[in-house]
Computed example of a mutant assay.
Amino acid sequence: MSGREGGKKKPLKAPKKESKDLDEDDLAHKQKLKEQQKALQEAKAKASQKGPLATGGIKKSGKK
């Protein structure tokens, strides 16, 4: 016996998943998620243009 034959055999390709029919509720939900994702991306882009919010760090008084 050669060393290559031992062990569990792997399938060549994964079986195709069945495409399930989407009803109107599923389509509306997917559309809503896309809109939320788009709004989040726009908010990130807008926030990155303004710059950092807290740049001062810890402020120290002159007293000891």
Rank of each mutant, 00 (worst) to 15 (best):
K20E: 03
G3W: 12
K64Q: 14
Q37V: 02
Q49C: 02
H29A: 07
S61N: 15
D25N: 04
E35L: 11
S48F: 13
Q41A: 14
A39S: 09
K46Q: 09
K9V: 11
Q37Y: 12
L40H: 13
R4C: 14
Q36P: 01
A43N: 03
K60I: 03
A45Y: 12
D26T: 04
L27E: 03
E5C: 10
K30Y: 08
K30H: 05
P11A: 06
L53V: 08
Q49L: 14
K32D: 05
K16F: 03
K8G: 04
D26M: 12
S19A: 12
G6Y: 15
K17G: 11
H29L: 08
G7R: 01
H29V: 06
L33A: 08
A54P: 02
G62I: 09
K44V: 01
E35V: 05
K44N: 13
K64T: 14
E35F: 09
K34G: 10
H29G: 05
A54E: 07
L40T: 08
G57I: 02
S2N: 05
D26P: 01
K38M: 06
T55G: 00
G56K: 07
Q41T: 08
K63N: 10
K13H: 02
K10G: 00
E18M: 01
H29W: 15
M1A: 10
S2A: 13
G56H: 08
A54D: 01
G7K: 10
K63I: 15
A43H: 10
L12S: 09
G3V: 01
K44A: 03
G7I: 04
K60V: 04
K38I: 06
H29R: 09
A14C: 10
I58V: 10
G3D: 10
K17Q: 04
P11S: 14
T55L: 11
A39V: 12
K59G: 03
K8D: 00
L53R: 01
K32W: 06
Q41K: 13
G6S: 12
A14R: 02
K63Q: 08
Q31F: 07
E5A: 05
T55Y: 03
G57Q: 00
A14K: 06
K34T: 06
K59H: 07
I58H: 09
K32I: 08
A28N: 04
G62M: 08
L40E: 14
G51E: 00
E42G: 09
K13M: 10
K63E: 14
K8L: 13
A47H: 06
S48E: 15
P52W: 03
G62K: 11
E35R: 07
S2I: 03
E42N: 08
K44Q: 12
E5P: 00
Q49Y: 02
E18P: 04
K64S: 14
D21I: 06
A45C: 02
H29N: 11
K64E: 12
K16C: 09
S61C: 12
Q36H: 11
A45S: 08
L12W: 03
Q41L: 05
G51M: 00
G51T: 02
E24I: 02
Q37C: 14
D25C: 00
K13W: 14
E35A: 11
M1V: 12
E18A: 08
S61A: 15
Q36M: 13
K44G: 01
Q49G: 15
K13A: 07
K64A: 15
D25E: 07
L22G: 00
A45T: 07
